[in-house]
Design a protein around this nucleic acid. Sequence first.
DNA 1: CTACCTGATGTGACTGAGTTACATCACGTA
DNA 2: TACGTGATGTAACTCAGTCACATCAGGTAG
Lengths: 198, 198
Amino acid sequence: MGRWEPDARGRLLRAALELFSARGYEATTAAQIAEHAGLTKTTLFRHFADKREILFQGQELLITLATDGVAGVCPDSTPFDLLRAGVLSLCTPHGTEQREIGRQLDALLSSSPELQERALFKRSTITAALREALTTRLDDPRQAGVLADVGIRAYYEGFDSWVRSSDDGPLADVVNRELQAYEASLITLSDAQPAPFA
Amino acid sequence: MGRWEPDARGRLLRAALELFSARGYEATTAAQIAEHAGLTKTTLFRHFADKREILFQGQELLITLATDGVAGVCPDSTPFDLLRAGVLSLCTPHGTEQREIGRQLDALLSSSPELQERALFKRSTITAALREALTTRLDDPRQAGVLADVGIRAYYEGFDSWVRSSDDGPLADVVNRELQAYEASLITLSDAQPAPFA
DNA sequence: CTACCTGATGTGACTGAGTTACATCACGTA
DNA sequence: TACGTGATGTAACTCAGTCACATCAGGTAG
């Protein structure tokens, strides 16, 4: 593994965050990031498919977490229980360090459509994985689709508020509250529509 | 307006679709597209911010349609009625020509993550606009968010099946059926969860 | 201790996206 | 006919990303 200086990917992430935060995303060159991490442009692109990917590394883990979280729920549970299991599994790997990274990423996202686009793509990939996991446990694929959207929405909004405020509890609590609020909204939604169509 | 050859944007779109379909998206150069449309690379980038944007021009119209569709519904209607109005408004500008374009775009999307990313971004922009329109009419922003997701999902899935099959009715009918199926799924969803939390 | 083998890195050249400053040209108008 | 305006062309440039090839650090076998 680590013969030369170890953890090239982590060094590149830190370098990128630092330079992007200082000069902005577009004004920072891939070569500058590499140099700041003690590497070369070519090596950078050996580790990451493109410049944006430096910031979004490790999101594949979330796919595994969501999928496994849903798969490990006892057979007779409600759709919302399945969803909660999947979504709360996403919260496990987030400590104080992730919060700081999230903070910086947040600031960058709000000023770069290019990064927003990639963030959205990642989010949609995770949503698709969760939807697929839910579909195998729920015979209605449409239900699975809506649930996955709602769950990931709760996760991202929970993550946002967790990142912004300093002294919330663990991420899982924030996300769980968000999820419950969505459940409530969904229920009043179909209450308001007792006989939707003939 | 149109002094030289008219409709440069339309010509670029047709050129791009033709070349992309023949050689693939990545193998086609921006200069080739421009030349095939009787223009120059520089002029191409005066009309479109980047290569992908050629294929997604005109999606701003959808934002207007969705927003206006929601705004023009009578005051005492259910949340689903609001949603239906917004989503069905999206269907008005789609004729036979749009179907052919949709067909080609569909094929391209399935083979290019780069294009998928942009398509997703457009979709999310439209969803955000619909959500905002719904929020002004629905006091629960979470409900608005879920409804917008569901509505746009129904629209895209309806559009997909409309594009694929040759002799469906008008797009609005297909999308409306899809929308009704989602409403039904949502209702059975909260039925299955009579007492969601203590 | 030496000779390899392997995988991570560096070098330099290359393609193509997108930008920019400047020139040009088609058309409408005075 | 001269002028103004907006769309286009030209050419040079930066930077993202790729590729072929050289190198170098470390482990392993003899």
